[in-house]
């Protein structure tokens, strides 16, 4: 078995972080995405957002203790992981300076047939990002397949 099914339900503690322009810039640089909504204060101010916002997949950077969760609770091998699917639900935009908290929880563990890879172990993590008023800002469900052999 490539995965410990007892990892279902395990979660990281809530972690406090601040969204920074540096993090936004690093992601945009890696994506070679120069859209000014993510980096030009004047252009972003003229938009309905009224200022710079994080790009749509920014939630991927929230991963405090994620590796410990996957290695410790699920006992998976990092090189065997395939991050195949993600669903992001947006409640409010993230902006530089936002003080947020996030938590990662294993919400599914099982074995299924992947259209791409055949029958494999898989797990789903839920990443929840909230503001200090405990309101959800964004959440993502990420499904990982675990290669065998």
């Amino acid at each position: 078995m490539a995965i410990n099914h007892d990892g279902l339900g395990r979660e990281t503690p809530w972690a406090e972080t601040v969204v920074t322009q540096e993090q936004i810039g690093a992601l945009c640089d890696a994506l070679e995405d120069d859209l000014p909504l993510f980096g030009d204060p004047a252009v972003a101010a003229a938009s309905a957002y009224g200022g710079i916002v994080a790009p749509p997949t920014f939630i991927n950077v929230f991963r405090r203790a994620k590796t410990e969760l996957l290695l410790g609770a699920l006992e998976v091998d990092l090189p065997k992981l395939l991050h195949g699917e993600q669903e992001i639900v947006y409640y409010a935009p993230l902006r530089p300076g936002d003080r947020v908290r996030h938590r990662i929880k294993i919400i599914e563990v099982g074995r299924k047939k992947s259209r791409t890879y055949g029958e494999l172990d898989y797990f789903t993590v839920l990443i929840t990002v909230k503001n200090r008023e405990d309101q959800k800002l964004v959440e993502a469900r990420q499904r990982f397949f675990v290669r065998e052999g």
């Binding site: 909504l37 938009s47 309905a48 957002y49 749509p56 699917e85 993600q86 669903e87 639900v89 935009p93």
Partner: peptide, 12 residues
Amino acid sequence: WDRPLRRFSLRA
């Protein structure tokens, strides 16, 4: 542009 995304899902 500044119209909000509500949901975005993708499979590799």
